[in-house]
Each structure stands twice: as C-alpha cells, then as structure tokens.
Design a protein around this nucleic acid. Sequence first.
RNA 1: GGCGGCUUAGCCAAGUGGUAAGGCACGGGUCUGCAACACCCUUACCACCGGUUCGAAUCCGGUAGCCGCCUCCA
Length: 467
Amino acid sequence: MVIQIFNSLTRQKEQFVPLEEGKVKMYVCGPTVYNFIHIGNARPVIVYDTVRRYFQYKGYDVKYVSNFTDVDDKIIKAANELGEEVFELTERFIHAYFEDITALGCKQADVHPRVTNHMDDIIEFIKVLVEKGFAYESQGDVYYRTRKFDGYGKLSHQSIDDLKVGARIEAGEKKEDPLDFALWKAAKPGEIKWESPWGEGRPGWHIECSVMAREHLGDTIDIHAGGQDLTFPHHENEIAQSEAYTGKTFAKYWMHNGYINIDNEKMSKSLGNFVLVNDIRKQIDPQVLRFFMLSVHYRHPINFAQDLVESARAGLERLRTAYSNVEYRLNAATNLSDNGDTYLEKIEEIKKFFEEAMDDDFNTANAISALFELAKLANTYLNESNTEERVLNALLQTFNQLGEVLGIQFKVEAELLDEEIEALIEERNQARKNRDFARSDEIRDQLLSMNIILEDTRQGTRWKRGL
RNA sequence: GGCGGCUUAGCCAAGUGGUAAGGCACGGGUCUGCAACACCCUUACCACCGGUUCGAAUCCGGUAGCCGCCUCCA
C-alpha cells in the first residue's frame, strides 16, 4: 500500500512518492530554545517522530532533520533577564529538550542543526537573494521582497493583496512593502552579533530553515512539517526564500499538526496555563502522554484535560495488561490447541488494519484501535484452556512491532520482587489453600498499598505494578 | 473584511455515498472464596434547515455556535 499524506500545499491527500526511491527527506521545524518546551511544542515532535517511525517500518531510509533556533529576540531577552550568556542559556535548554523528548519516546533527529553553526551559510544565502533582486538592504537590515516572488501565498492560500490588507503598516518602516520580512537584522548595542556584508547583526527568523534544510537535505526535500501556526508566515516565507534561491520546488509535501488546548482554552501566557513537559512528565507517565496525543488525528485540535488523560491512561493500561498476561501465559503454554491458525490469521488482519490506518495520512487514532482489537484477541485467546507458544509469541511480536511504530512500549521491564514481597505472595497462597481468606485479603491489601496488584489465574498468581 | 477548520453516545474519538470503528465511564451477566484481570450483553434522532441521490454523518446551499491564521521583535 502507498502512504497518503494530506499536503497543506494542495489541501488534499496525495500519494507519497519519494524524490529518491526508498528514501525520505524530512525537515521538522524545531524549538526556539529559551525555555523548557510545553506540551504544545511536544505535539509536533511526537507526531513527526511517529511519521518517521512508520516510514521506517515500511522500509524507507529516512533522513530526519530538526533545527534549534538558538538565536533570536526571545532568547536575547531571556538571557538578559536571567543574566546569562546566550549560548549558556541555549545549551541548557537544548539539553532539557533532549531529556524531555526522550522521555516522550521520541528519537533524536539524524541532524539537529543550530542557527549559530550556520552563520556563513546564512549570509551566503542572503547574498544570493540580494544579487537576484529578491532582497534588499535597508539601514543595516536586509528584507525579502515578497512582491518579487510569484508564488507568494501559495501555502497559506492567500493572495498577496489579501495579505497586504492585514499587514501592519508602521511608522518609520524600513521596508519597501509591509509584507516584506527580515532576512538580516542589524544588531542593537550590546546584542549578540555576527559580521556580515551589511554590518553587524543576526539572521531573521525564517532564513535559518531555508538554509539548514538545503544544507542537510538538498534543494528539494520530501516532507516539511511543523505546527499549524507556522504555515503563515514562517513556512510561506521559507518557500519564498528557498525557491527564489534554487529555482526549484522547496518541499513536495507540507504537513501541519493542530493545536493543543488546556481545559478547552488556548494555551497562553496571559492565562498562565502553560503546561511544561518537564513538569507534567513527572506527574503523568510520559508514555501515557504520548499515547494520549496519538489518540487524536494529528491535524485535529486536542484538548489537554485531566480526565481525558486519565481515560488514555486506563486505555494504555488495558493494552499493557493484555501484553503482560500473554507473557505470563507463555510459561504455561500447552501447545495442544487446534485453532492456532485461526488466531494467527486474525493477528494478520489486525496488522493489516493498522497499516491501512497509518497509510491513510497517519491515522494514529485508528491505528490505536487496531491495538485494542489485538488486546481483545489476546484476552480471548487467554481464555482458551490450551494455548500454543507460536500464537502467544505472534501476539507479543505484533504488539512490539506496532508499538514500535507508535513509540509505545507494552513490555514492562522484567523486575524482581524483593524476597519479602515474594514471601508475602507465598504466604497468601498458603492462606488461600487453608481457606484463611481473612489473612489472604489482608496480604493482598498490604501489597496493594505498595502498588502491587495481584491477579489469581488458573495458571497461578500473577502480579503487576499499577500504572 | 480575507482564508480555513470544527460541531458524531455521559466523556473522548474514527468514519468523505450503502442506515455508525475503538477507548473511558455506567448498568446487567459469566468467571473468582471475595476481588482483580478478562469475556458477553446493553447504550447514537451523526448541531439545525433545505437540496441532490434508489440511498448522505458523509455531496451541495443556507442557519447557528465554537475555534485558528491574516508577519516575530521593536
């Protein structure tokens, strides 16, 4: 099957055809590193990590690039407020970023380019745009001449004149046209700065992505992705810069994920309802957060609320329980059943359903429903009196394969109980044999208070930790 | 004003022409010493109005409500 991607550029689902057979070149706009990331920043990281994982599952060789914006106004402001050097601040939050996304089950990109490491490339790029007449210098700033670029507005589907209506016109404007945007900004006294043909300064916000995408992935890339809010102006401007520079298509497919609301309200500074990944992942299992995010289609808004996360938690727990129950049964497989093939076929059907869901514009909500089907199948199988290792193994393997695509682990690391707890379980089983249920219930409650949940089965007493 | 999105059961959420996946919660049942896990059963006037069609949650038109973007920083 072929993957269909909803392309923001055409506003349609399109078949994914790679530029180069078997390869995918992806660029995902990364964070401006002046603070810890919040869950709104985390959504694209999780979503596109999953996209990447699915391409890999399908056998593609993916080159995944995601930048760090490590110099910009917000960073300079934060550094000033904290009395910290810009590079110290950014280094600190880049480190924190990796910690956060790793906890969320996201792999690092193949390349994490930083603006400050590409200053020469950026200056060179701007120079070419000036030479070609797509940019002009004005009092130490350099601006992009949007009127000069024919396709301006094609991503946000706005005509340049409509855009102009909304554009701010400010006094003392150094731009020729209000729609023009800065490629290079002259440094103000005391600000971090780099030498350039236009004087000391630093790059504008949009130019970095054009430069770094080209540097690491080439003139044309397969997929360029980011949050919906980046469509305009950021991505529109990237297209203008890159296509003016190369004369080629910048990105074939544009993907944009929806926003996150907090308790049905927009996350905003004024409301003070920012949820930092660094805080929330200490309260909620980050795997639950990831599972929660993937339970909604990536292009739709998602509402972050305690009861909804709790419901996701319960769902993930159901999947994990099914997984560990299959594992537990592996020790008691009789290999006597005669309906193993039927189950193996059903597993294949579920896998197919999963793939069809993911092929259809990465419909993770449906993909997750396939996992619930798998759990139900596993549970039904475990109710059979005879089970075969090959079926149990196929169930576990499928859980693992599909979980790998979503970045969700069902397997809980094997853990040895202390002798004390083992002894308690043993004591309880003795008590049960002796029909001393008062004592056995007492022990069960005692273990429960240690977050150890006991489940009695025909094959013995199994235990798990609460999620 | 321009462009776009959303409205499906108590809650969440799939579903773009053939009378509604899945999850959470609730209720009933089976299993269990009791539980837990699990399984079975039950639960939908698809915002509203009109149209196209043999047939629409799905297409078209309209209405209502909610939401996003329309250039950072100064």
